[in-house]
Computed example of a mutant assay.
Amino acid sequence: MLWGAASGALELRADSKGGVRVSGRFPYATETELAPGRAERIEARAFAERINAGEEIHLLFGHDYDRPLASRSAGSLEVIDTEAALEIRASIDGNTTWAADFLAAHRAGLIRGLSPGFRVPKGGERIERRGDGLLRSITRAELFEISACTKPAYDGAQIEARAWEPPVTFEYIGTGLQRTLNRWRA
């Protein structure tokens, strides 16, 4: 084993074919502060729709589609959705320069996290006011990729939340206040 953690991080092990097996875990219902006053939580099975439909999902190096590490269509990525967590298992052969770079960076302790790349469809989130801040709860999201990353926003799970755009108009739960936002970025 090159590295692993009980909290559900990115783990690499050599496989019998000379490649590397990668596994990772993103625990659901974990709250994180993306920016001052802006917290986010991804609810259980929020990514289930595309996963259960067998849609293409990639494992990428740094959210870069030009640096793929594994994919469902290539048979090198398995994505499992449970009540507790989103889990991945992948095989990486290291025959590309970016895969070799990823493996070297991981061995050096520079890359330890995972970051899901997703889009939230209309009706897939709840925004609620909390004191001076907001909590965004994602209940449904379209998962397109999962990336190995350097610094995850979800520290406990070693997962990074992505920048997102809320719907043009939303309702603060409990207040009825309508707001229009151009963009809310972490």
Score class of each variant (00 low, 15 high):
residue 12 L to Y: 01
residue 148 A to T: 13
residue 19 G to M: 10
residue 117 G to S: 10
residue 72 R to N: 01
residue 181 L to C: 09
residue 50 R to W: 10
residue 131 G to I: 06
residue 8 G to K: 00
residue 59 L to N: 03
residue 167 P to H: 11
residue 94 G to C: 10
residue 83 E to S: 12
residue 182 N to G: 14
residue 47 F to A: 04
residue 42 I to G: 06
residue 55 E to T: 01
residue 168 V to D: 15
residue 131 G to C: 11
residue 126 R to N: 14
residue 151 K to V: 15
residue 169 T to E: 15
residue 91 S to Y: 03
residue 32 T to G: 06
residue 40 E to A: 12
residue 164 W to K: 11
residue 78 E to D: 11
residue 148 A to L: 11
residue 127 I to R: 12
residue 147 S to Y: 09
residue 4 G to P: 06
residue 151 K to A: 14
residue 121 P to Y: 08
residue 85 A to R: 03
residue 79 V to K: 02
residue 87 E to G: 01
residue 8 G to R: 00
residue 173 I to Y: 12
residue 69 L to E: 02
residue 26 F to D: 01
residue 8 G to P: 06
residue 161 A to P: 07
residue 91 S to C: 12
residue 133 G to M: 13
residue 111 I to P: 04
residue 20 V to Q: 02
residue 116 P to D: 04
residue 107 R to W: 03
residue 101 D to F: 03
residue 65 Y to L: 01
residue 29 A to E: 15
residue 146 I to G: 03
residue 11 E to T: 15
residue 48 A to V: 14
residue 148 A to S: 15
residue 55 E to D: 15
residue 85 A to Q: 10
residue 93 D to F: 02
residue 139 T to R: 07
residue 132 D to Q: 13
residue 145 E to K: 01
residue 148 A to Q: 09
residue 140 R to S: 13
residue 50 R to D: 15
residue 81 D to M: 00
residue 116 P to L: 08
residue 121 P to V: 00
residue 157 A to G: 10
residue 95 N to P: 04
residue 17 K to I: 04
residue 101 D to T: 14
residue 1 M to E: 10
residue 136 R to T: 14
residue 131 G to F: 08
residue 43 E to K: 00
residue 73 S to C: 02
residue 164 W to C: 13
residue 176 G to L: 04
residue 70 A to K: 00
residue 75 G to S: 05
residue 153 A to E: 05
residue 43 E to P: 02
residue 61 F to T: 06
residue 145 E to P: 09
residue 41 R to A: 02
residue 115 S to G: 06
residue 73 S to I: 03
residue 35 A to K: 07
residue 112 R to C: 07
residue 35 A to E: 12
residue 110 L to E: 13
residue 83 E to F: 11
residue 46 A to N: 05
residue 66 D to Y: 04
residue 138 I to G: 11
residue 88 I to L: 12
residue 105 A to G: 06
residue 123 G to H: 02
residue 163 A to L: 10
residue 161 A to S: 02
residue 51 I to G: 05
